[in-house]
Design a protein around this nucleic acid. Structure first.
Lengths: 87, 87, 87, 87
DNA sequence: CACGGCAAAAGCATTC
DNA sequence: GAATGCTTTTGCCGTG
């Protein structure tokens, strides 16, 4: 903004340090975004090969979860369904 | 599915309670949907009067963000100055 | 902004009409938000009665879907699981 | 689970292809997570240098929104004028 | 007018 | 308990 030496603005030593942290952070954010786009590409390619993207994501989510937690949730869901006469 | 005489497919007290929560939730969801339809009507009417729906939605979005942003902008400036030891 | 008669700003006839559409739309949006809050209350109450909110939402989602679509998706999911040796 | 000799739990060509898409996706997800950790390191380092993490994140968010908003603001103004027949 | 893609909202879990 | 990031859902739009 200006180049005075008062330190009362973002061009002082403190400001420079702050700026560096922010820029490092933003660079990493950009990389993350880049990878996100690559993930979309993978999904698009899979779709092009005839797979159902929605279900692929379900599979990925399933693989990430602990088997016993998964079983637990299934059990409760069945319980509720039974209570509602949905089975 | 069962042989109780309540006329509901729920099984037992728990099932009834569960069903009530779900039905209340679904009723509210239906109301929300109803209002959504009214919003579409407003948009359709505006369109009939020669306005561009896309633009209207942008204006609404902008108006919504504006107050937040003003407040945020102010807050951030103060925080920023504090972080730089300017206060 | 001003009260001239050029029609070149948002206080002319056209501007008034535009404003009315926007305000009607925003009012409806506020109502929708209000109902959303009520839905959250229902869920909170159910949780207080010992039900699992996450699974309640799953039930609601299940009830909304067409049975045959549901079966179809289940089938594909099982197919993929089998292909991956997850069963 | 099966008796093929590939050393994979996949069943058949389709399973292999499916597995590849999923693993590529998961690898990218892991990379994304890795970068997230690096972002946290940057923040931690900044904190160690006396900056307030909450403020830093706000600044980043503000910087991110700014360009978008400027562009949008401009666009909306033009659209708005067009909608009002001012062009 | 249905359908799929895309953008925005909301729910959920996690982290600080 | 506030805030961040991720996932899922929702709503909108263009195309066939």
């Amino acid at each position: 903004m200006n180049d005075d030496m008062t330190g009362h603005n973002s061009n002082g030593i403190i400001g420079d340090e702050l700026r560096q942290f922010i820029e490092r952070f933003e660079t990493l954010a950009a990389e993350r975004h880049e990878i996100l786009l690559q993930q979309r590409e993978v999904m698009a390619e899979a779709k092009g090969r005839g797979f159902d993207q929605r279900i692929l994501r379900k599979i990925v989510a399933l693989r990430k979860r602990k088997p016993d937690e998964l079983a637990e949730e299934e059990a409760i869901l069945d319980l509720y369904k039974a209570a509602l006469g949905m089975m």
